[in-house]
């Protein structure tokens, strides 16, 4: 990998990047990716997705549309799911990023969602899968935190959302799957959703 980790910059987390000269188009950016600090010197145009794929060789996050229309690039940013293709890396200085590579435990034990996806054959080509998995982690967290979805009844005001199949479908509708594995994805998320560990990730637990 050509770029790997650039020399560590001692810049402050969440600090203002050094852009002394007008017309400066690069900045030093420090990210905590899957629990490890990664210091990069990046063109401002570089998205989080391209920073992961092209600069950190973390190619698990996929580029399906590059415009926030397919969800294949979904990662967790400070614990929340987001389309990494629409985030400029420079804006994330100091943030924690969890990608699909950070879901399994260091000993290789799969995350409950990963296990469920395998068990239910919740993918075919696998290209949307990392995004589906990160999105599902985020969706389970949102449900646990009581976040409603468009199909949640108005009356359901407090407490964790009950994840019916209809709820899972709606909450995961930001992740396209052209192989049409949706029914299996819904079963996998429903299955894993009963496991309290499914809202966690190994690297976040370790931080």
């Amino acid at each position: 990998m050509a770029h790997a980790t650039d020399p560590p910059a001692p810049g402050p987390a969440h600090g203002t990047p050094d852009h002394a000269a007008a017309g400066d188009h690069r900045s030093r950016v420090s990210l905590r990716v899957n629990g490890a600090r990664r210091d990069l010197d990046l063109d401002h145009r570089v998205t989080l997705l391209d920073a992961l794929r092209e600069h950190l060789d973390l190619t698990g996050s996929k580029k399906g549309c590059d415009h926030g229309q397919c969800g294949a690039c979904t990662v967790l940013v400070d614990g929340r799911r987001a389309n990494s293709c629409l985030l400029l890396a420079v804006t994330l200085d100091g943030c924690g990023i969890t990608t699909v590579e950070g879901l399994a435990a260091p000993d290789g034990a799969l995350h409950p969602l990963q296990r469920a996806f395998v068990e239910h054959d919740a993918f075919q080509c696998g290209y949307c899968t990392p995004g589906q998995l990160c999105s599902a982690v985020g969706a389970l967290r949102e449900a646990a935190a009581g976040h409603p979805s468009h199909v949640t009844a108005d009356a359901a005001q407090a407490g964790p959302a009950v994840l019916t199949a209809e709820e899972i479908r709606e909450r995961l509708s930001g992740n396209l799957c052209r192989c049409g594995a949706y029914p299996a994805i819904v079963r996998a998320v429903a299955d894993a959703g009963t496991d309290p560990a499914a809202t966690g990730t190994a690297v976040e637990a370790a931080v």
Binding site: L58, G60, E101, F123
Partner: peptide, 15 residues
């Protein structure tokens, strides 16, 4: 189960 399933769910399958 598909033999490459683990590679696909861990993001190690390279395209």
């Amino acid at each position: 189960p598909r033999l490459e399933a683990r590679d696909k769910v861990t993001g190690t399958a390279r395209y």
